[in-house]
Deep mutational scan, measured.
Amino acid sequence: SDYEVNVNGIHHRFHNISEELIKFIEEALRRGEDLREIIKKVRELLG
């Protein structure tokens, strides 16, 4: 049904976003950045 496609589409989009965010955060932590600064950047990215 349309509803299922829609829900799956939304889930898929969020899954991709969270994968990208996790990579972004892991790389920043590897560079020794402060978690609070990383979260601030993530918030800015998400608008």
Rank of each mutant, 00 (worst) to 15 (best):
S1H: 15
S1P: 05
S1R: 15
S1Q: 13
D2H: 07
D2I: 04
Y3M: 04
Y3L: 07
Y3D: 00
Y3S: 00
Y3V: 02
Y3A: 00
E4V: 07
E4C: 06
E4M: 03
E4H: 07
V5W: 01
V5D: 02
V5I: 12
V5E: 01
V5P: 01
V5Y: 02
N6H: 08
N6G: 03
N6R: 10
V7K: 06
V7D: 04
V7C: 05
V7W: 06
V7Y: 04
V7L: 07
N8Q: 07
N8T: 02
N8P: 03
N8Y: 00
N8R: 04
G9K: 01
G9N: 07
G9A: 01
G9E: 08
G9T: 02
I10H: 15
I10N: 11
H11Q: 07
H11K: 11
H11E: 08
H11P: 02
H11A: 06
H11W: 06
H12P: 01
H12I: 14
H12Y: 03
H12D: 06
R13E: 15
R13G: 09
R13L: 15
R13K: 14
R13N: 15
R13H: 15
R13V: 15
R13I: 15
F14H: 00
F14W: 14
F14S: 01
H15Q: 14
H15F: 04
H15R: 07
H15W: 01
H15K: 10
H15M: 08
N16F: 03
N16G: 14
N16K: 02
I17K: 00
I17T: 03
I17E: 01
I17Q: 02
I17C: 02
I17F: 02
S18A: 04
S18D: 10
E19D: 12
E19T: 08
E19S: 08
E19H: 12
E19C: 03
E20L: 10
E20W: 12
E20H: 10
L21H: 06
L21F: 06
L21W: 03
L21R: 02
L21G: 10
L21Y: 06
L21A: 10
I22P: 00
I22S: 03
I22A: 05
K23R: 10
K23Y: 13
K23P: 04
K23W: 11
K23G: 08
K23H: 12
K23N: 13
K23M: 10
F24W: 14
F24N: 08
F24V: 09
F24R: 06
F24E: 07
F24D: 05
F24S: 06
F24Y: 14
I25G: 00
I25E: 00
I25A: 02
E26F: 04
E26T: 09
E26L: 07
E27A: 14
E27L: 09
A28V: 06
A28R: 08
A28Q: 15
A28N: 15
A28E: 15
A28M: 09
A28K: 09
L29Q: 07
L29V: 14
L29Y: 04
R30I: 14
R30E: 13
R30M: 14
R30D: 10
R30K: 13
R30V: 13
R30S: 13
R31I: 09
R31M: 08
R31N: 12
R31L: 12
R31Q: 15
R31V: 11
R31T: 09
R31G: 08
G32Y: 07
G32P: 05
G32F: 06
G32V: 05
G32C: 03
G32L: 06
G32R: 04
E33M: 13
E33H: 12
E33T: 14
E33G: 06
E33S: 12
D34Q: 11
D34M: 11
D34K: 06
D34G: 13
L35Y: 02
L35S: 06
L35I: 15
L35P: 10
L35F: 05
R36V: 07
R36W: 13
E37T: 10
I38D: 00
I38C: 02
I38A: 03
I38P: 01
I38L: 10
I38H: 02
I38G: 00
I38V: 13
I39E: 07
I39W: 01
I39K: 04
I39C: 02
I39Y: 02
I39H: 04
K40A: 13
K40C: 01
K40H: 13
K40M: 14
K40S: 09
K40I: 14
K41E: 07
K41S: 13
K41F: 09
V42Y: 04
V42D: 01
V42N: 03
V42M: 08
R43N: 15
R43L: 13
E44D: 11
E44V: 13
E44N: 10
E44C: 11
E44I: 13
E44W: 09
E44M: 12
E44A: 10
L45E: 07
L45W: 06
L45K: 10
L45N: 11
L45A: 13
L45H: 11
L46D: 15
L46M: 15
L46W: 09
G47H: 11
G47S: 13
G47K: 12
